[in-house]
Amino acid sequence: MSQVELSPAQAHDAENAHHDHPEWLAHHFDTPDQQNTSAKMGMWAFLGTEILMFGGLFCAYAIWRANHYDAFWIGHVYLSTAWGAINTVVLLISSFTMAWAVRAAQLNQRSLCVGLLALTFLGGCGFMVIKTIEYTGKFEHGLGPGIWYTAPAISKQLDAMAETAGTASHADAEAAPATEASGPAAAESANPVPGTSLPSSAAAPMGMVAPAPVAPVGHDMAAHSAHGHGEGHNYYAAHGHTTEDLVTARTFFSIYFGMTALHGLHVLVGMALILWVLLRARRGEFSAEFNTPVDLVGLYWHLVDLIWIFLFPLLYLI
């Protein structure tokens, strides 16, 4: 390419700098296309970094799961597949409304775009509300991450209280030694709950929603015995788990909280970004010519969805 060929383009650039430069086109770009390409490129590179950041957690997950499969098996029983599935659906739908909002922005459909962004935002809210319900339930039962994982000790106390109160029924007396004798296999035959049957494992965490944070542990225990098919002598035993199983499961809740908390943080950031483009869209700042921000926020929101698509089966459907 020679000097002569380039000169017109160059002259055009210089001319262009002085007039016909729309307000939304930054001074250092020559054309809207150049600006849009740069922005998309930067966004995809950034999304690559997000994938690698979550990649670290997926790596931790893989290694822990391989080293402590039993922990993952015991722990996942306490997650509600129903809530997880509902959250997946909520995110998928909000991803769809987001994609539609981008389309609306491209077609200059301003009010439709605003409405769809609002729906997307609501989807994010719904996701976070469900997540809060799930988190609250976990913390109530001492199934938090790290130092908040107190389930084994609570379980032991419950056992002791049941014994001292002398309320151990004949069924309990039989079930407990069986569990002691041959581990989870026996526990499972005694109590068909873990994993295999959707209704009970889904129902139990729904039960957690019941506001019982101030109830004494004893009452808590009674409440859980009630919906634990009357077989276990406490909430954990109702899931077929001994204190020892709970000790093992600690690992699972650490990775569960690690992954979902980082994802939840991304949902919150995504919601803030959606609110920002929503306000800008209401002011009519976007048009068929310029809608890059909607597009980029959309990409971010889809990434959040994408990560959840992997988290759901890995955490809830072991």
């Binding site: 970094t49 997000e50 994938i51 690698l52 950041m53 979550f54 990649g55 670290g56 957690l57 931790a60 991450p145 790290g146 130092i147 908040w148 650490s254 909280f257 690690g258 980082l262």
Partner: peptide, 18 residues
């Protein structure tokens, strides 16, 4: 990004003993 997650896990380990 891998450093970022490493350091977050390290903080979680130190503070929460995950």
């Amino acid at each position: 990004p891998v450093l970022a997650i490493t350091l977050l896990l390290l903080i979680a380990e130190r503070v929460l003993h995950v």
